[in-house]
């Protein structure tokens, strides 16, 4: 009964990523176009703009949300690909646990970085 839940979460995570990674990509890579339209700011990778984002609660929260959604979406996709190589039942279990723990570790690590950047 677990599969449909995992699948619909994959879709929901995809929608979250679409929105927040869309914003992120816009800020980072369409900055000249957006600033000429009057939104966003120049030099998004300069230390001063990093500081602005570090201290903005909106970015801290959406970074953590995006981190979780992207890790789930990416690892579910990887699981799909691995499962489709005719894995046996025990190999499937191993993949599940491996991806779960690696994902959890990365979530804690990245979440810590986002919070630390906000607090410092």
């Amino acid at each position: 009964m677990r599969e449909p839940t995992l699948w619909i979460l994959h879709i929901l995570a995809g929608i979250i990523i679409l929105i927040f990674l869309g914003i992120h990509m816009g800020i980072m890579h369409l900055d000249t176009i957006l600033t000429s339209l009057g939104v966003g700011y120049k030099n998004p990778l300069s230390w001063s703009s990093v500081l602005i984002r570090n201290k903005a609660l909106f970015f801290t929260i959406t970074y953590i949300l995006l981190l979780g959604a992207a890790l789930y979406h990416g690892f579910y996709g990887l699981r799909n690909i691995l499962f489709e190589l005719s894995l046996g039942k025990s190999a499937q279990k191993a993949v599940n646990w491996l991806l779960f723990f690696v994902g959890l570790f990365l979530f804690i690590y990245g979440g810590y970085a986002a919070i630390a950047a906000y607090v410092i």
């Binding site: 009964m1 677990r2 599969e3 449909p4 799909n80 499962f83 489709e84 499937q92």
Partner: peptide, 15 residues
């Protein structure tokens, strides 16, 4: 049928 379909080898393998 739900029980037979909600398994890894069910429709979730279709993209």
């Amino acid at each position: 049928r739900l029980e037979l379909l909600c398994v890894p080898e069910g429709p979730w393998r279709c993209h």
